Amino acid sequence: MSVAKNICFFLFAVFMITATPGWASSDKPGEGITLKPARATWNTGYFQEAIVSRALTELGYKVNKAKDLKNPIFYKALTFGDLDYWCNGWFPMHNSQLPKNFNDQAQKIGYVAKSGGLQGYLVSKDAVEKYNIKSLDDFKREEVKKAFDKNHDGKADLTACPPGWGCEKVIAHHLKVYDLEDDINPVKASYEAGMASAIGAYKAGEPIFFYTWTPNWTVYKLKPGKDVMWVNVPKILPTEAQAVAVDRMTQSGVEGAVTDPVKLGFVVSDIRIVANNKFLADNPAAKKFLELFTLPLADINEQNTRMNAGEKSAKDIQKHVTEWIAKNQAQWNDWLAQARDAAK
């Protein structure tokens, strides 16, 4: 009897030793695996990367510090297998920057923010209503130019993009093709300084006119539909680079637009995660989370506003992630549960 008991105890002990790692791995399917993420050079995209890294860490992965890379360099490194993923793909805007072998080695997965990458021109709502502004063409009217002329050169001042930004070229294209070079003055100083000045002018009751994109802190501080309105370009006349996505330069359902649909004059992009194929095939839990993860634009804009106000250290961003998870705990738990199930 004693021998039988000892055998049973021995077999049970062996079972426990061999089974315990299996139980642990069901909760931490990424245990023992190191991931190599990257992130874009614009800080409005840091938040989503930090959230994804936190999730993958909770799934057991060791996530290396993300490398800050320019778009073409990241996409090339991704296809080489040097990196695993990033959360900052803008499509179709980035399509022209993908290597020829991209589809063989990598893929776009999930939607961080579908149609979230808006760009365009905004005007203070009071001025839109006072001067009946619908499009850039309205800035040819003398009373409109005069209202927005800050430096008294006879042109409406537009808070635009600094030299070297992609949007600088598109704005220059617009002023040329819509014959607005004598009517609008694009102010190309530091964008943050320019927008700080615009917000100050708005608070002082002055009309403002600026370019922006989403997600961005600007549309959190100046809310479309309440403080400002998106205005049209006169008609869609794309640059050569925009021509392949001309259908995405007009958008319906944009909150705070003067018309629906609104002709933005910029390509509306989906913000998507981009990942290496082998990484996804080898890590079903990570793949499932990346497929599921999405982030409301309002939440990104709010976090970007906190960064703009000074909360921009790595520690600050981690605090923002913790607070966001706490506010969205049920959704967070569900995403992680589905990710764990995918690995079983």
Rank of each mutant, 00 (worst) to 15 (best):
N333Q: 07
N333Y: 01
I208R: 05
Q119P: 06
A113M: 02
A314R: 14
V254R: 14
G154L: 12
K67Q: 09
E31S: 12
A343E: 03
V231S: 06
A257L: 11
G310S: 04
S269N: 14
K150P: 13
K36H: 04
W217Y: 09
L158E: 05
H94F: 05
R141G: 10
Y211V: 09
C167Y: 07
F139V: 03
I199L: 15
S26N: 03
T212L: 05
D341L: 04
D182C: 01
K176E: 15
A55R: 10
T305A: 00
K235H: 15
K235F: 12
P186V: 02
V262Q: 04
K62E: 12
G164C: 03
K5Q: 06
T305G: 00
I184T: 02
N276P: 05
L83W: 00
R141C: 10
I184R: 02
A38Q: 02
A204G: 02
K223V: 08
A326R: 13
T18E: 15
T305M: 02
V267G: 11
S26P: 01
A172M: 09
R272S: 07
A275M: 13
V219T: 03
T34H: 03
E192R: 13
D138G: 07
I325C: 08
R248A: 02
K62Y: 11
L222W: 00
N6D: 14
V233K: 12
K5L: 09
D316T: 06
N232T: 00
F12G: 15
Q303R: 08
Y75E: 00
A309N: 15
P207L: 06
A298M: 09
Y131N: 12
Y211E: 11
I184C: 01
D179Q: 10
A50Q: 06
M229E: 11
L280E: 06
D247H: 11
E302V: 04
L175Q: 03
A172I: 10
A201T: 09
V3M: 13
V112M: 10
A257V: 05
D247V: 09
G110D: 02
K100P: 08
G310Y: 04
A77M: 00
K327T: 06
Y178T: 04
A243P: 14
G89N: 08
I7R: 12
P284F: 05
K176M: 14
S2H: 13
G265M: 04
